[in-house]
């Protein structure tokens, strides 16, 4: 299989023709994910971590917990920050340097799912109101790019948060003192992102790299555990009809429930 992201016209046509007949080049059905593998807690130095393989896409997420100042408009809440790194070892297309728009978009879509589903009980992460709170740093590290980074990253982020522990502490004279022992990070909801690509009028879930090259546009829906939508992002320079948007939402909602079982129940 090719590692180049330029897809020849013949291959482009082949991908589109197969999809028109309900098939895909890698043998999957249109609404079938690639094989998903999840490894948890593999980085001991991080308070939480997980590695997700989605076919040949590999994403590692590390969660670090720090203590810092809350946002001035939310003095009683912990802080969540999501960052992503498209490191050059992951793809011939990635270059070192400050984060580009791809990487910023990836981090912000993962962030939106976690934040809007109120997955982390941030109000339980306040240490001294207005002064000291826990800061949860979620760092998405892409190790091999073979398409659909959003879904892989969102799953890895959730899996990592689910095994994140925060240290015990006591407050002495306004200072935070670390005490032995840990407790789990309060995770209340399990947001799952599902991405679909539009190729020649058809919708396919979990596009791999060649399909991303061929697709007109993609759309990501994140769902909370109640099946409510908690984030949406359309990407790519094509468009969806209104009917396609609603169909994509229905497919995504079904797939999200399946994926959630894998991530949460493991």
């Amino acid at each position: 299989m090719t590692t180049s992201v330029t897809v020849s016209r013949i291959r482009r046509r082949q991908i589109a023709q197969l999809i028109a007949n309900g098939m895909r080049l890698d043998g999957r059905g249109l609404t079938e994910y690639r094989e998903i593998k999840i490894e948890r807690g593999l980085i001991e130095r991080a308070e939480g971590s997980a590695k997700v393989s989605l076919g040949r896409t590999i994403v590692l997420v590390g969660v670090k917990v720090g203590v810092g100042e809350p946002y001035s408009d939310r003095p009683n809440e912990g802080v969540l920050t999501v960052n992503s790194e498209l490191v050059p070892l992951a793809s011939p297309e990635f270059e070192a340097g400050p984060p580009g728009e791809e990487s910023i978009e990836l981090a912000r879509v993962v962030d939106r799912g976690i934040r809007e589903s109120k997955s982390i009980a941030l109000e339980e992460l306040c240490i001294i109101p207005g002064k000291k709170v826990f800061i949860i740093f979620v760092d998405v590290y892409v190790l091999n790019h073979d398409g659909n980074l959003i879904d892989a990253s969102a799953m890895a982020a959730l899996a990592a948060l689910l095994n994140t522990k925060i240290f015990n502490y006591e407050v002495e004279d306004g200072e935070v003192k670390i005490k032995p022992g840990f407790k789990p990070l309060p995770v209340k909801d399990y947001p799952i992102a599902v991405t679909l690509a539009e190729i020649d009028g058809k919708l396919v879930v979990d596009p791999w790299l060649d399909e991303e090259e061929v697709m007109n546009a993609r759309i990501t829906f994140a769902f909370d555990k109640e099946g409510r939508i908690c984030a949406i992002q359309k990407g790519g320079s094509g468009f969806f009809t209104k009917e396609q948007v609603l169909e994509a939402m229905r497919i995504a909602r079904e797939k999200a429930a399946e994926l959630r079982k894998l991530v949460v129940e493991g």
Partner: peptide, 9 residues
């Protein structure tokens, strides 16, 4: 198309 917040289908 984007969304933040939560909505039922």
């Amino acid at each position: 198309l984007q969304m933040d917040g939560t909505l039922t289908p």
